[in-house]
Design a protein around this nucleic acid. Structure first.
Lengths: 339, 339
DNA sequence: ACTGGCACTCAGAAGGGAAGAGTGCCAGTC
DNA sequence: GACTGGCACTCTTCCCTTCTGAGTGCCAGT
């Protein structure tokens, strides 16, 4: 359907539009790119591209602008991820190496990504579900209340206070703690659930007032996918793209404030590609219809644990952004593995 | 210097400007407010107010707009904090009552404040320095590494991993843990530092490899004022005030992204007033020169622990915002005390 | 299949009143 | 002496028109 020259024209349009922010016409296109044909020929090609829905005209006598479909084709077939420069890579490494703990790594990552891409960065904390439980701590904080602290292999700490209803003594808490830790060691999600259920049933009826809520809370914490923590940074960068968002960045800011939206934003692990791109309306949320999300999974010791990415206008530098996201994802995984 | 009528005029100007978003002239002023005199008289009063620096003209033939100084006078002498309606109070209570833990309380608070005031909300986590340490937990996470978890009376959990350099055994960790907990019980900042130093010296030379870094880390964590966690919400509301910020909300968003700025933003406990207001240039940061910050301390069981507030354009409804901030601060303290 | 040329369209800039809001000042009134 | 009505003046804002330039589609010619 689309011969090589049409693809070359589309590529040129995307590149020009991204860098100039202005609809691109046939004449400027031939001037800036060595396509070897005249504007008139380009016009014919453009007419076809428009008919097929890859480009569009903002108004009748303006140049062309890529559509979501056009960007999609560009990302899939017309461009390659652009590796970062050596200097950039070194800067990333140095910046992340200074981190002292998990929180610090995540915070630094989000700032780094935002700065590197001049866009909004989103970083998810390493997932509980895929991590193993390293330790469970139980602490009485009031006569009937127990604080549960859960430490995972990814260094994440989850806490929760439960109320047992009845008075609980230090001794039974200590007993339960040691049993719990013995049971959970190294287990992942499903196996953990089974093992904990067994453990719960092994306690006598008198201990259930304590054991039952504690184990329920542990299971809930582990299973609770909704508790995914996500950190956002670089929202100020949005201000540079007011025009791309039809004059108001409000809907975008609103979407980014909803935790639920954020969680779905980064999407699922995208099969074989290292970097996933969601363009415009491919995004799940209305307010993000004119944004694109470039995201990637990061892994700790070959275990995919979470995702990170950036949100920007559909008119973004895809190759560069993809390169930055990929590079940062790799480094973060490496840093976290070392901790 | 300023007689009652001039004050009445200033009050009317502030109220009108806040509600209409437009410079207010002498004629409209007499139409909307029952000042009992003609526009010409008002004009004379306005001329004086302008000379004194309470109001200004955006351009020669426009109406008047309050200056920072004008707002200041309005807040200090011309208005009273507006209590929330019963319905609003009930809504606050219900919304916050649903919170399950500290994180949830803080998150709900920030959302609540943002929605209630239609502005950007800022909430600080209860301060470590003023809280007592409820429990310290030590967990070996690797041969030479120990995870320190610190639980404060305000329900906050701080974590840190340290590397002792040498291999440490479970037994000495357990011993140190029980000693630590025995020592810190109920102590606040300064006393805690002294007690911990004593404790450290009481250990033998062979144990110092473990004891020294652990105690140092505990002290650091407790003393570290910079680690104040602050949560932000409702930034989307900024978009509504683009005009107030000379066309770009970028500097504001940037300022709000800097942790350091945020920490200084809420300011210090403001003496006797329940609610502190910082207007325009009174703010410490350049980017916030056309915003005002309304903040308040919140207390847990009469112990002031942290602050919360909102950031909005200087052209804001001060009485209403102050009422909302005060009410939320009270409720949060109450909720946290109950947990 | 490509190109040059031409007529056409339309957004956006530039210019020019006209309207409207607001001001300062002054002379007159209570 | 304080207040008011009136008046001349100053600006912004809005709307209208005009003009320019970029860009298009189409067609006949190479």
């Amino acid at each position: 359907m689309l011969d090589d020259r049409k693809l070359a024209v589309l590529r040129a349009i995307v590149q020009d539009y991204v860098s100039t922010e202005e609809p691109v016409g046939s004449k400027t296109l031939t001037e800036r790119h060595d396509l070897g044909v005249s504007p008139a020929t380009i016009r014919n090609e453009m007419a076809v591209l428009e008919e097929e829905g890859y480009i569009a005209q903002p108004h009748p006598s303006a140049g062309r602008v890529p559509t979501d479909k056009g960007y999609r084709l560009f990302v899939d077939r017309l461009s390659a991820i652009k590796p970062l420069s050596v200097a950039e890579r070194r800067a990333i490494g140095q910046f992340l190496d200074g981190a002292v703990d998990l929180d610090d790594v995540i915070n630094r990552t989000v700032r780094l990504l935002a700065q590197l891409t001049s866009q909004v960065a989103v970083v998810q904390y390493p997932s509980l579900a895929r991590a193993t439980v390293r330790h469970i701590e139980l602490l009485p904080v009031a006569p009937t209340r127990v604080l549960i602290v859960l430490i995972t292999s990814s260094g994440r700490v989850e806490q929760r206070v439960i109320d047992c209803g009845v008075q609980v003594d230090e001794q039974s808490i200590a007993a339960l703690r040691s049993q719990l830790n013995h049971t959970v060691a190294g287990l992942r999600s499903h196996d953990l659930a089974v093992a904990l259920a067994d453990l719960r049933d092994s306690f006598g009826a008198d201990a259930q007032a304590l054991v039952k809520p504690v184990i329920a809370a542990v299971l809930e914490t582990v299973a609770d996918q909704h508790e995914e923590r996500i950190v956002l940074g670089g929202t100020a960068n949005l201000a540079r793209f007011v025009q791309d968002f039809h004059g108001s960045i409000r809907p975008v800011l609103e979407a980014l404030e909803e935790q639920v939206v954020l969680i779905h934003l980064l999407g699922e692990a995208g099969g074989s590609q290292p970097v996933t791109v969601r363009i415009g309306h491919e995004n799940p949320h209305e307010g993000l219809a004119s944004t694109s999300v470039v995201s990637s999974t990061y892994s700790i010791e070959d275990q995919a644990v979470a995702r990170l990415g950036v949100v920007g206008p559909t008119r973004m530098d895809y190759p560069g952004t993809m390169g930055a996201v990929r590079a940062v994802a790799r480094y973060v995984g490496r840093i976290l593995a070392g901790q």
